[in-house]
Design a binder for these strands. Structure first.
Length: 887
RNA sequence: GCCCGGAUGGUGGAAUGGUAGACACGCAGGACUUAAAAUCCUGUGGCCAUUACGGCUGUGAGGGUUCAAGUCCCUCUCCGGGUACCA
């Protein structure tokens, strides 16, 4: 029978839909549950990309396999549908983003259904649906009403926050200020990039190196806007510790650890000459205080103005202005030369009372530590570079552990920087009574930190790179904040029963005059009054796209619940997510934000687990072939033709080099899954994407490769659908062995997400079976079940042809029998000095001595040994024999 | 600069420290066909032989550990991704 995939796939997709085959079980008593989650897509206007089905197929195989293993499976899909493109389309055409979004979701849903993915469509969610974002807003209110108890290391309701006496006395204003300073969500000024031409706030990535806006080319500037911020650093320690328990790729765990960036050190107070203020720095190397020869503060440091002396005001102000125009990329480029200006003022180094100058430089950032550093040029590369440029003193205080005497001399003279360990020198002072000379780094750090603490000059301190999360956007197409700004300055969160706060319909989607979002144009929506006539204004910022994706996995559990965020019993049953697959681009931001929200919800008793995603896997990007000329310029794919394995430019005739690059419109190398399914079918697309290589590596798409798996599916179908090939009675020994090998291999590979080798094992079995020409009904049924998670449409069809009336989606997964896998004979490779020379078949149960005896008696062994005497013979049972001759 | 990956035939890739190149693509030859497509069969890392189911060589480069290294360790080169000069 021909492999008519069009007909087969259509029929079974309809069957699954009509019968709701993949409906999530309601029975919560089955102890075996598996929650399998994809990173839900942003439904872009371009439709599905071949990158989407890669992860979706992987989770689908896993889901189908787990159902056959008797698990209750939750496998949902939805849309992360707030976002910029729909808003920009609205600005251009006036089409409401909800219309664009709906159309895009319809396309995505159709395309996904055509891939035969076993989602429970009753669980579909959409982040732009008021029934969904009602609860996103609700979570925001929870964050707003939560503070972090440092002692207990957990979030607690704001009502449980005790007021210190000195706060309670002065009055209501002080109390509000104090409480606001402890909330996880707060409202404050923050700097953002602003394009005066487009009247719009720009993301970092939209700002080019020369500070121009990539869309219009005009110069952008920094602007202070009121923004909502989330205090994620309070959870830094919890987020860091939680990583250890997770079954995630080590590389991703490392990236999260580095992002949180815990470092231990000390805060040290420096007296400022002529000011009644201290300059506090954070340092990981308090041991190098004796080498601190100057200080640097960030241009934005709150004391910059006070510190700068009259004579230096102009140069410092000019410098601050210049810095504000630099892009982050510019400022953080290490290759760029260091810049800075002297403030005219000095601080006093607490360990030796020496006067050291205070400079302003943009290599010190205001967001990290205290925004000020003590500079130790002899032992820090950046400080060294800066000191050399501005001729600041360099004092070496460590005798370096180097053998090269020339290098040692240079370091001791302050002509080279030394950042490794060494015994301290020049590190004692009689008046302060401190002496660490002769000590090594660890002892030095401990000693000085203790000294600072006893003298009240500093404290041991843990610092994190993780910064407060800027949580608002000046956009229309996002979740409105459920808060009201009252005319008297009070900010209140809306009541739960007033949610959701929906977006108003607008005539125009252009942003407001002063950088406010388009929502500021909707006066009717914007202005409200309370029952006492107090006037208030709604928040015009909206939430970032992260908001909806931070918690969507929770809503999938109970998406239609309009009374609660979800049913608690259902949450308890399904959480945590057992397998989460998506792109590595979310390694830090989404996954960290989401863990943060989850931990807050856990602290508030809303969710039952401390972590949301137990097992995570990142799929690799799918690239495509592209072509470039000898000089390296890339050429659109439709201008290139292949002749005899080489590639030529259609117009110039030049030979082109085939390279691998990201799919892009400009290279015309985007592969559309619809084209593949119409030509080869969904099962072939699924199988190819899994057969291309390991799931986690980036790999190039090759249309020719689809033919390979298409051929395999065709052979399998033609062989198994032909009754002449299916027999009754006993199965042949080699076929039976091959069958149990493939069951075992596929099972292990699915558990470890190694689908490429699982597919190759199935190919090997099919090659074996077709060579034999006949298999029994049992064998055919078992192989069909093994194939089912990968090529579900064809498997259902074969299952039906083999005489079954029900779907095989819930048929028990076949069990392999070790008995059939046992070997009597092993073909030993015999190697000499590690090089394999010949093979010899031996019974598996021979002793090492017997094996040596037989091997040495073999003519081929005699030839290789010659006149030499083997010095050693290694026998690894059922693996190898190695005869050592040399020496 | 720093962090995380990676480098194996013409191509995608396989290989618990134990036979390098499974499986597939491509290519070559053959069968079927008037022909082509489809399908099936055979071969296929390179070099030397082809009298031998012979030899030599081979996993980015160079060292090391080991009876044995694609795999472990060190140094280097190149490529991909991330990036916030983190004091």
């Amino acid at each position: 029978m021909d492999y008519n995939f069009h007909e087969i796939e259509k029929r079974w997709q309809k069957y699954w839909e009509d019968n709701k085959t993949f409906k999530t079980p309601e029975d919560l008593t089955n102890p075996k549950k598996c929650y399998i989650l994809d990173m839900f897509p942003y439904p872009s206007g371009a439709g599905l990309h071949v990158g989407h089905p890669e992860g979706y197929t992987a989770t689908d195989i896993f889901s189908r396999y787990k159902r056959m293993k008797g698990f209750n499976v939750l496998h949902p899909m939805g849309w992360d549908a707030f976002g910029l493109p729909a808003e920009q389309y609205a600005i251009q055409t006036g089409t409401h983003p909800s219309i664009t979004t709906k159309n895009n979701c319809d396309t995505f849903r159709r395309q996904i259904k055509e891939l035969g993915l076993s989602y429970d469509w009753d669980k579909e969610i959409n982040t732009t649906d008021p029934g969904y974002f009602k609860w996103t807003q609700w979570i925001f209110i929870q964050l707003y009403n939560t503070w972090f108890d440092d002692k207990l290391q957990r979030g607690r309701p704001i009502s449980e926050l005790k007021l210190p006496e000195n706060i309670a006395k002065p009055g209501q204003k002080e109390i509000v200020k104090y409480i606001d300073s402890r909330r996880l969500a707060y409202y404050d000024d923050a700097l953002v990039w602003w394009c005066p031409n487009c009247r719009i706030v720009c993301a970092n990535e939209e700002v080019l190196n020369d500070c121009s806006h990539e869309k219009c080319g005009n110069r952008v500037e920094k602007k202070n806007l009121k923004q909502w911020m989330l205090r994620i650093p309070l959870y830094a320690e919890r987020l860091l510790k939680g990583i250890d328990k997770l079954d995630w790729p080590e590389g991703i765990k490392d990236m999260q650890r580095n992002w949180i960036g815990r470092s231990t050190g000390a805060e040290v107070d420096f007296k400022i000459e002529g000011l009644n203020e201290n300059l506090t720095v954070f340092t990981t190397r308090p041991d190098t205080l004796f080498g601190a020869t100057y200080m640097v503060i960030a241009p934005e440091h709150p004391l910059t103005d006070a510190i700068t002396t009259h004579d230096n005001k102009n140069s410092v102000n000019d410098y601050i202005k210049a810095t504000s125009l630099k892009s982050d990329l510019d400022r953080t480029d290490l290759a760029k030369e260091k810049t800075g200006v002297f403030t005219g003022r000095y601080a006093i180094n607490p360990v030796n009372k020496k006067q050291i100058p205070i400079w302003v430089a943009d290599y010190v950032l205001t967001g990290y530590g205290t925004g000020a550093i003590m500079a130790v040029p002899a032992h820090d590369n950046r400080d060294f570079e800066f000191a050399q440029k501005f001729h600041l003193p360099i004092a070496c205080i460590q005798d370096p552990d180097v053998s090269d005497s020339e290098q040692k001399k240079r370091i001791l003279e302050g002509k080279e920087c030394w950042t490794e360990d060494g015994k301290y020198i020049n590190s004692s002072n009689k008046s302060t009574g401190i002496d660490i000379n002769g000590m090594n780094k660890d002892a030095g750090i401990a000693h000085i930190t203790k000294w600072l603490e006893t003298k009240n000059l500093g404290t041991a301190k843990v610092n994190y790179k993780l910064r407060d999360w800027l949580f608002s956007r000046q956009r229309y197409w996002g979740e409105p904040f459920p808060v009201i700004h009252w005319e008297d300055g009070e900010i209140t969160a809306m009541n739960e029963n007033e949610l959701p706060l929906e977006l108003p319909k607008l005539e125009k989607y252009l942003p407001g005059e002063s950088g406010e979002s388009p929502l500021s144009n909707s006066t009717e929506w914007l202005n409200i009054a309370d029952k006492n006539g107090r006037k208030g204004r709604r928040e015009t910022n909206t939430m970032p796209q992260w908001a909806g994706s931070c918690w969507y996995y929770l809503r999938f559990i109970d998406p239609k619940n309009d009374k609660m965020i979800f049913d608690l019993a259902k949450e308890k049953y399904w959480m945590p997510v057992d397998l989460y697959i998506g792109g590595a681009e979310h390694a830090v931001l989404h996954l960290l934000y989401s863990r943060f929200w989850h931990k807050v919800l856990f602290d508030l008793g809303i969710v039952s687990t401390d972590e949301p995603y137990q097992r995570l896997f990142n799929q690799g990007m799918i690239l495509a072939f592209a072509y470039e000329t000898e000089s390296g310029s890339r050429v659109s794919g439709d201008l290139v033709e292949e002749r005899e394995g080489k590639y030529f430019h259609k117009e110039t005739g030049d030979e082109m080099k085939q390279i691998v690059a990201k799919m892009s419109k400009s290279l015309k190398n985007v592969v559309n899954p619809d084209d593949v399914t119409s030509k080869y079918g969904a099962d072939s697309l699924r199988l190819y994407e899994m057969f291309m290589g390991p799931l986690d590596v980036t790999k190039p798409w090759d249309d020719k490769g689809v033919k390979g798996v298409f051929g395999f599916l065709g052979r399998a179908f033609r062989f198994l659908s032909n009754p002449d090939n299916i027999t009754n009675g006993e199965e042949d020994g080699t076929v039976l062995k091959g069958l149990h090998q493939v069951i075992k291999k596929v099972e292990g590979d699915i558990e470890n997400l190694r689908f490429n080798t699982a597919i190759s094992a199935m190919m090997i079995f099919l090659n074996l079976a077709t060579k034999k020409g006949k298999v029994t009904v049992d064998t055919a049924c078992i192989f069909t079940k093994v194939l089912a998670p990968f090529a579900p449409h064809m498997a259902e069809e074969l299952w039906h042809l083999l005489g079954h009336n029900e779907t095989l989606s819930y048929e028990p997964w076949p069990e392999f029998n070790e008995e059939f896998l046992k070997e009597d004979i092993f073909d030993y490779p015999v190697s000499f000095d590690g090089k394999m020379r010949f093979k010899i078949e031996l019974p598996v149960n021979l002793s090492k001595e017997e094996i040596i005896k037989i091997v040495l008696a073999d003519e081929r062994a005699k030839k290789w040994i010659g006149t030499a005497t083997p010095s050693n013979i290694i026998v690894v049972p059922n693996r190898i024999v190695n005869i050592v001759i040399k020496n």
